[in-house]
Design a protein around this nucleic acid. Structure first.
Length: 852
RNA sequence: GCUGGCGUGGUGGAAUGGUAGACACAACAGACUUAAAAUCUGUUGGCUUUCGAGCCGUGCGGGUUCAAGUCCCGCCGCCAGUACCA
């Protein structure tokens, strides 16, 4: 790259100010009770989604959200808040373990290198983090409390009556058996079919499968004994309590749909005297049920299959078992299924209906069995048409509806005692009827499944659990943290046996007592990190009560963190898991709000210069280090905010970076001039003079707009206003120092290095300029009087079209404005020969004359 | 298919129902310079023009309104998420 002459010496003053902030701990904020804590100030907690420190280093997507929160942080500080703005590392994870497998090196080494690189990069951007609160999820002091929270879950159950978690000791006091108690824990062991990857040597969450397959790893289904967390107990609260949160509607909806509540009824059918329960959201269509479908894995299939159908059924079951859930849905274009030979009795009319098995019914949802109503369900309709099964109408569609399969609300027909009832009433009546006869009841089902919480990895938190005589037992708190032992090598075992089982000495505690060898998923550490920041060094608790009450509450909102910024990719994973853990901790009295995050903002993806997603293979990745080297940190920060609205997806443009770089250079040149020797010296235009009316106007308009725009997180328009202001100041022959200082103050949250440097230079030369860091100064106030003008421009429209613009006195009345408008020659020429019907005067804006 | 979101100059994007295109990028022209870079100034939605200006224009079609990029109805296109959840 050709050497370019720096338009301002950012490479000198940026590191200087970063060192200054670090040395003076400018952005450290004390906790209640600590020295320097100012209880009179309100708190504001601004949180970034902490990064996984990958080997690739920071990409330009990270500083997007981080700059936004940094601006808010600095702005809130200047407005008198105690601002908590921390950073840390989500450092457990598969890539570090993959590296360890390849090199034989402990994953901690690689993780540490990557973390150091990330920290260096973030510091080079001048973010106002309180680095004294830095945390790392792999740190033993942190692992200890992640394990401690797991034990809280383990030692709790969900009380249905009170709709909250309570200590397991209550069940012990009631004399429940060990098995009964273990079956109610929020953390429990169950055998379920999971996604197992032999070459990764671990199970994967459903959400992770696609990613690792794409990287060439194999993933198969197999039943394994796993640790589960009972998130389903919180399904309703996780839906309901979204209400009070200031989150994007899209994310709320995503979570609501993910949890997937559906209201319906369970209905008991009988097959050869054996009871089979189905779940339906449309019990009102019971009279239209013409067949039944069981999931291929349904336990009753074998018993009801007739001899002549045995072979076909077994064959079909075999095909289904070989498919993963994904393949099952991918190949779902065409309905398939097999008749079992059995028949079920419909409880409402005692009709005999054939029982089929088909893979469009899932064992894991509802009861794994459905009544099929082909007249009013699209899937059943498709199936019935393919296999020639009867279709009986049970709901009359409203007039004019011609759909062949009507799924909406109508009027019950062919339905015995329901006939004539509108769908909602029919639902109520049949439910009451079923309950009265003991044939069924109203039920709610959720799509949400319990959370599979164990992995067979090495690089994760070991479970603080031991096994004795086939039963699990919790370690006492005093034995935390439980750390994984060093291994000879990190290669997968090749079986579902967890990697830690290789450490036989660590596992075997004698007397047949063995350690649990599974580890927790990465989500564990990220589920509560926002709490730890509040009291990052506390050796005695995950967080002290005082710190929790101050930083996580105090303003009457359900959520504790005031602002949380990050990508959408966590909409249903991290954000759901963290809410769940938080609610458990809330129920058990460890936190004071029911929700962790009050306001959530998603930053949009930054695409490559070619409009494509940035990726190594496309070669369109932008490295922030390169941008900082060429244009400085302030330019990178400013550009990322100037690109467009934060939430929006937008492409990178190096030319755009140059644009904001030029803007910063113009600001620099307002203060500094280059002399004959090419050295920078204070501009001769600077003067301690009264700014005058027009300069005051633009400066005060800038104070107002920038403040409003930061509040609205509309950073791009704030920057354009500062550009307007700078362009105005550039035109002046003599530059009022006070106006310049104001510009530096409002620009400071965006470009902190440049503004501090220039302010320091001004302070050295002018007595009227404070030598205090801008970061510690108060946000300037704007004077409303400076914004009003004596004369304002009014647009004159005739029939909605702009015909003229006139200057009028500010205080002109509506009547005066109208009279002035009518005097316009242009207006006269356009209404010549027409009759004026109406005149609309919008004060301060326009006059519209309606004439024909 | 369903659910969200979005369609504005050559480009990124501005516009409490009230002057569409702020601010910036790119392009073109000029000043400075031996030259280049940097910097500064000007022009830049389209069409027509007698150079005064006029007409058209925010994906398409309709509607509400004195006034619509903005609100309503119906389409089309793009992006994201999700996928047989009974």
């Amino acid at each position: 790259m050709a050497e370019r002459r720096k338009q301002f010496p950012f490479d000198e003053f940026e590191p200087k100010w970063q060192g200054h902030w670090e040395k003076n701990k400018t952005f450290s904020v004390p906790n209640p009770g600590e020295a320097g804590f100012d209880a009179s100030k309100p708190k504001y907690y601004v949180l970034d989604m902490f990064p996984y420190p990958s080997g690739a280093g920071l990409h330009v997507g990270h500083p997007e959200g981080y700059t936004a929160t940094d601006i808010i942080t600095r702005y809130k500080r200047m407005n008198g808040f105690n601002v908590l703005h921390p950073m840390g590392w989500d450092a457990f994870g598969l890539p570090a373990e993959q590296h360890a497998i390849k090199t034989g090196e402990h994953p901690r080494i690689n993780t540490e290198n990557n973390t150091n690189n990330f920290r260096r990069q973030l510091k080079s951007l001048g973010f106002a983090y309180d680095w004294e609160r830095e945390i790392n999820t792999t740190d033993p002091a942190y692992v200890k409390w992640t394990q401690w929270i797991f034990l809280q879950l383990y030692h709790s159950y969900f009380c249905e009556e009170e709709n909250k978690a309570k200590p397991i000791s209550e069940l012990e006091a009631k004399g429940l058996s060990r098995e009964e108690i273990d079956n109610r824990r929020l953390a429990y062991v169950a055998e379920t079919p999971v996604n197992w990857s032999p070459d990764l040597g671990t199970v994967l969450a459903n959400e992770e499968v696609e990613e690792w397959r794409a990287k060439g790893h194999t993933v198969e289904r197999r039943p394994l004994k796993q640790w589960m967390l009972r998130i389903t107990a919180y399904a309703q609260r996780l839906i309901d309590e979204l209400e009070g949160l200031d989150w994007p509607n899209g994310i709320k909806l995503l979570q609501t749909n993910w949890i997937g509540r559906s209201d319906g009824a369970e209905v008991d059918f009988t097959i050869d005297g054996e009871k089979v329960t189905v779940f339906t959201t449309r019990p009102d269509t019971l009279f239209g049920a013409t067949y039944m479908v069981l999931a291929p894995e349904h336990p009753l299939v074998e018993a009801i299959t007739t001899d002549e159908q045995k072979a076909a059924v077994a064959e079909y079951q075999k095909t289904c078992a070989g498919k993963s859930d994904l393949e099952r849905t991918e190949l779902a274009k065409e309905k398939s299924g097999v008749f079992t030979g059995g028949f079920a009795i419909n409880p409402v009319n005692n009709e005999k209906i054939p029982v089929w098995i088909a893979d469009y019914v899932m064992m894991s949802y509802g009861t794994g069995a459905i009544m099929a109503v082909p007249a009013h369900d699209e899937r059943d309709n498709e199936f019935a048409e393919k296999f020639g099964i009867d279709i009986i109408e049970a709901v009359k569609a409203p007039e004019g509806n011609e759909e062949k399969c009507f799924t909406g609300n109508g009027t019950a027909v062919n339905s015995g005692f329901l006939d004539g009832l509108p769908t909602p009433e029919a639902k109520e009546k049949i439910a009451a009827w079923l309950e009265e006869k003991g044939l069924g009841k109203k039920t709610i089902n959720y799509k949400l499944r319990d959370w599979l919480f164990s992995r067979q990895r090495y690089w994760g938190e070991p479970f603080p659990i031991v096994w004795r005589d086939g039963n699990h037992e919790a370690l006492p708190e005093s034995e935390l943290p439980l750390l994984a032992p060093e291994l000879e090598d990190y290669k997968p075992t090749g079986t579902p046996e967890p990697l830690l089982s290789k450490a036989t000495e660590w596992v075997d505690l004698g007397d047949g007592v063995k350690r649990e060898t599974n580890t927790m998923p990465q989500w564990g550490g990220s589920c509560w990190y926002y709490l730890r920041y509040c009291d990052a060094q506390n050796p005695d608790a995950p967080i002290s009560d005082e710190a929790e009450e101050y930083w996580m509450a105090k303003n009457g909102n359900p959520g504790g963190v005031d602002l949380y910024v990050g990508g959408t990719e966590h909409a249903v994973l991290h954000l759901l898991y963290a809410r769940f853990w938080h609610k458990v901790l809330f129920d058990l009295g460890h936190v004071s709000t029911p929700e962790p995050f009050q306001k959530l903002v998603n930053q949009g993806l930054i695409m490559g210069e070619d409009g494509q997603k940035m990726s190594k293979s496309r070669g369109n990745v932008v490295n922030p280090d390169d941008v900082v080297a060429l244009y400085g940190a302030d330019s990178l920060r400013l550009y990322e905010m100037f690109m467009g609205p934060l939430e929006q997806v937008k492409p990178w443009s190096m030319k755009g970076v140059e644009g904001v770089f030029r803007f910063l250079a113009r600001v620099w040149r307002l203060v500094m001039d280059s002399n004959q020797e090419g050295e920078w010296e204070l501009s001769s235009k600077l003067a301690e003079i009264d700014p005058g009316k027009s300069t005051n106007k633009v400066v005060h308009a800038t104070i107002k707009k920038v403040g409003d725009d930061i509040d609205a997180m509309s950073f791009n328009t704030a920057i354009s206003q500062m550009m307007v202001c700078t362009n105005e100041l550039t035109k002046l022959e003599q530059l009022p120092v006070s106006s310049l200082v104001t510009l530096l103050q409002v620009l400071n949250p965006f470009a902190p290095h440049l503004t501090e440097e220039l302010n320091a230079k001004l302070a050295a030369a002018f007595d009227s300029v404070s030598g205090d860091d801008l970061a510690g100064q108060t946000w300037p106030e704007f004077d409303e009087d400076c914004l009003v003008e004596d004369e304002i421009e009014i647009v004159l429209q005739v029939n909605g079209k702009v015909r003229d613009k006139i200057m009028i006195p500010n205080e002109a009345s509506k009547e005066e404005v109208e009279a002035l408008a009518m005097e316009s020659e242009k207006v006269k020429s356009f209404i010549d020969g027409l009759t004026v019907r109406k005149v609309i005067v919008v004060p301060g804006r326009l006059v519209n004359i309606v004439a024909n």
